[in-house]
Design a protein around this nucleic acid. Structure first.
Lengths: 164, 164
DNA sequence: CGGTTATGGTTGGTACATGCAACCGCTTGG
DNA sequence: CCAAGCGGTTGCATGTACCAACCATAACCG
């Protein structure tokens, strides 16, 4: 509809940057807990539980790579999840330095509950959207994340300081 | 195309929840700094600078409301921005308890630089997108933020603990 | 008025998230 | 077998955030 690099594109990029900034800032506080009487599941922990659940037993290093976080950060969060009885570490048969993390029964339960609540919030937020918009948003968001992933992977610090 | 509440909707909601979680987690680290030799502009500070710039002098309380953050959080960030010489406080003629925040010359410069860099990153991330997708993403993101804003405003804690 | 309550902001205390540097122990390659 | 490297942990520093307690001014009310 419009030539590449048109003014409308610029406006879109500006708007996207703006909205992302706001979203990320605000979303800090949308971290759910286990349930009514339940256990605390921290914001950071939820991501780990979900990823472990969806992709099977993983090493801490694999988690760090997925989230683009420092190994030390993962290490502490893993320790606390283990403490809480939501995950266990099992020996890695191929390397005795490492181990693999697996959800416990309880971890699965907590994840299920928490995930249901979070999805409930999202559903409520999106209740008035058309199916087309929903599907579109889902796929654009996924595409954006994929791009971000690549960006962070290739160029870990360009976003910290643009140049030296 | 599909009946309301269809399976496809559920899948979209699930996917959106997932992608948002990942995005927010990863985006933590995409906070830019002032420039080559420049001053640190923290992630949080950037949002404040940008909002002050775009909507004129504001009270701290207005910032807190916009970001849905505690007044104390804003207070400290404002103090540090003032310290850095990026904003000034001017008396509020209507209420001597309050004051209004305004960007300084330097604040405007730093914002301009930082914003340009951030937009550059976003542009790079989105360089292969079609104009349609860009425009779509921008408007869906804005709509989502608007919904989130309403949600947080009406029901400040439902996302902290779903019920009692 | 004069006292009580409400509102705008700040400060102290605390918790969580995160990165970097230093370290420990196993693995791997001369 | 020793040196270099990798996986993970721990100490330390920072940034972001909330709540509770506080101060000062404003608004209300009898």
């Amino acid at each position: 509809m419009q030539p590449l690099g048109s003014k409308a594109d610029l406006v879109s990029v500006e708007s996207i940057e703006q909205e992302l900034t706001l979203l990320v800032r605000r979303a800090q506080k949308v971290h759910l807990r286990g349930g009514p009487t339940e256990q605390v599941v921290e914001r950071a922990a939820y991501g780990i539980l979900a990823w472990l659940h969806d992709t099977g037993p993983l090493r801490p290093s694999a988690l760090a790579a997925h989230f683009h976080l420092d190994a030390s950060t993962i290490s502490r969060q893993v320790a606390s999840l283990e403490q809480a009885g939501l995950i266990t570490r099992e020996a890695d048969t191929e390397d005795r330095r490492a181990f693999r993390l697996r959800l416990t029964e309880r971890g699965r339960d907590v994840l299920t509950t928490t995930r249901a609540e979070r999805r409930g919030v999202v559903r409520k937020l999106l209740q008035s959207w058309s199916p087309e918009d929903l599907a579109n948003f889902a796929s654009l968001l996924a595409a954006f994340n994929a791009g971000l992933d690549k960006h962070l992977a290739s160029d870990p610090n360009s976003t910290e300081r643009s140049q030296r």
